[in-house]
Design a protein around this nucleic acid. Structure first.
Length: 167
DNA sequence: TTCGTGATACCC
DNA sequence: GGTATCACGAAC
């Protein structure tokens, strides 16, 4: 399956979901078949199919037993841009500036739900140290727990999803 | 602003 | 069995 450049992007926007205590989380309350990945050990992908058309890509972050995940909401494309364009058929800035857009650009689907994100199929790498400012805001698109400012993004980055980007 | 689209959870 | 809900996006 390796043809040409691998797909890579810099994470510029995330949202935190803290399991049981967070009414905005899928893991709020109790463990179910759908959210069980979040209750497992950290470092695995939780991919959720939503609204009949969209996949969301999350990374489990808290230790086994404590449901917690980080939703990757936006990326800045780094390499494999031509392949992303092929998947998305849109302009560069719109390639990955939303949670469902980036999964489409990367061809992420429910098939990688539960995949180790330190493995070879998909992985998260440490970036260079750069100067940027991270700001927070309420999370997008949820009704419960909307008062918590658990959305984090790089201030001024043009690949952050297009919503009210005020802190 | 509205509508598409389907998996899941929860209620019969 | 049925149905309401849902971390969204594109088209009006």
């Amino acid at each position: 399956m390796e043809n040409g450049e691998m797909l890579a992007g810099r994470i510029v926007e995330t949202e935190a979901y803290k399991g049981k205590e967070d009414p905005g989380s899928h893991a709020y309350g109790k463990k179910t078949k759908r959210n069980q990945i979040m209750f497992g050990p950290p470092g695995f992908a939780y991919v959720y199919f939503c609204y009949g058309v969209h996949y969301m890509f999350n990374i489990v972050t808290l230790p086994e037993g404590e449901a917690g995940a980080v939703l990757i909401r936006a990326l800045e494309p780094v390499s494999g841009i031509n392949r992303m364009m092929k998947h998305r058929k849109t302009k560069l800035v719109q390639l990955t500036n939303g949670p469902a857009k980036l999964t489409q650009a990367f061809s992420i689907g429910s098939d990688i739900n539960g995949t180790d994100v330190t493995g070879k199929e998909i992985y998260i790498a440490a970036g260079k140290e750069e100067k940027f400012t991270i700001v927070s805001s309420p999370r997008i698109g949820i009704k419960q727990g909307a008062d918590l400012k658990w959305r984090f993004f790089i201030k001024g980055n043009s690949f952050v999803s297009k919503t009210k980007n005020k802190s």
